[in-house]
């Protein structure tokens, strides 16, 4: 659990982060969204003390984050940034081993962990381990960056626009990978982005920041349904709201009884994709199948449209 209490950061006269308090539950993903200059990156960097706060306290599992020297604290927290920040003069394997080496793990344990992470990220340790970062594609570099952040099995992972430099298709894949790995390791992730789409997709909770202040901190559905201010409303994007709301739910939860013609939709498709499929195929309803291929019922345009309406 991460407790942020009354955190502020001032540089001379300008206040970058203004009295922010929030609690991040363990094993969840909190996404901090905001425009550039909203203080979201500064807030993130105060958690691992790359930036020292002017006022306030941050506690990790109950312990003040100032109870350790900064560099020791940072070794226990994963850190991944936009443009990956890989060390160009070190091989992929050496890059991933950075924090374990700093922590003084023995060589065999480091190698085991590096191989495990590379395999997890679909990078063959034999082929990619000895390469240098420039020999990798952008997507591979990003994966190595995240693998490096996870190397020492941190409970908390901080990510500053980790997918910002990727093209849309690779970004999608990277997001799915991260969600899968978060489930697998149970890591608490705090992710900074300016992309509301990404926030709704990734976040268990979303924190919206504007001019250094925390404007709203809530579940995605609530942010979409009840934006706390005009700023949040703009950020959400008025015309996108119903679709974003739908993207939160799975088809499984919208199944109605009855049969329908056409190609079946898998139950774990997002409701948004299902609606798109219905509209595109020109049918009022489509059958739904479970993971085992058995029919579960059908999903209808009318049913989905009702779900896209503002929750009351």
């Amino acid at each position: 659990m991460i407790e942020i209490e009354g955190i502020s950061k001032r540089y001379d006269a300008t206040t970058v982060v203004d009295d922010v308090s929030m609690v991040i539950e363990p094993r969840t993903i909190a996404v901090i969204v905001g425009t550039s200059g909203s203080g979201k990156t500064t807030l993130l960097r105060m958690i691992n003390r790359l930036v020292e706060p002017t006022a306030g306290v941050i506690r990790l599992d109950g312990a003040d984050n100032r109870s350790l020297p900064g560099y020791e604290l940072r070794r226990s927290i994963g850190y991944a940034i936009q443009g990956h920040g890989l060390f160009p003069h070190r091989t992929v394997a050496q890059n991933i081993a950075t924090v374990p080496v700093l922590l003084g793990w023995d060589a065999a344990r480091i190698k085991r962990r590096v191989d495990e992470l590379m395999t997890l990220y679909q990078l063959d340790p034999q082929a990619f381990g000895p390469r240098y970062p420039h020999e990798l594609s952008g997507g591979q570099q990003q994966r190595v960056g995240v693998a490096r952040a996870l190397a020492a099995e941190p409970n908390v992972l901080l990510m500053d626009e980790p997918f910002g430099a990727l093209d849309p298709i690779i970004r999608n894949k990277a997001q799915e990978d991260l969600l899968a790995i978060q489930k697998r390791f149970g890591t608490t992730i705090i992710l900074v982005t300016h992309d509301m789409e990404e926030a709704v997709h990734m976040g268990d909770k979303i924190a919206v920041m504007d001019a250094g202040k925390l404007v709203q901190y809530a579940r995605p559905a609530e942010i979409l349904a009840k934006p706390a201010s005009a700023f949040v409303e703009t950020l959400v994007g008025a015309s996108e709201k119903p679709f974003r709301l739908l993207s939160l739910g799975r088809v499984r939860d919208a199944v109605e009884t009855g049969a329908a013609e056409g190609e079946a939709i898998p139950a774990d498709t997002s409701q948004r994709d299902a609606l798109a499929e219905l509209l595109w195929s020109g049918r009022p309803a489509l059958p739904v199948t479970g993971a085992d291929g058995k029919p579960l019922g059908r999903v209808t345009v009318d049913g989905l449209v009702k779900r896209a309406a503002r929750p009351t």
């Binding site: 691992n48 790359l50 560099y71 020791e72 604290l73 940072r74 070794r75 226990s76 850190y79 940034i81 936009q82 443009g83 990956h84 920040g85 890989l86 060390f87 160009p88 950075t98 924090v99 700093l102 960056g145 490096r148 952040a149 901080l158």
Partner: peptide, 14 residues
């Protein structure tokens, strides 16, 4: 590169 420096600090190098 700035990012390499930032990553080095962020991962706990003195």
């Amino acid at each position: 590169p700035r990012a390499a420096n930032d990553a080095a600090r962020g991962m706990g190098m003195t």
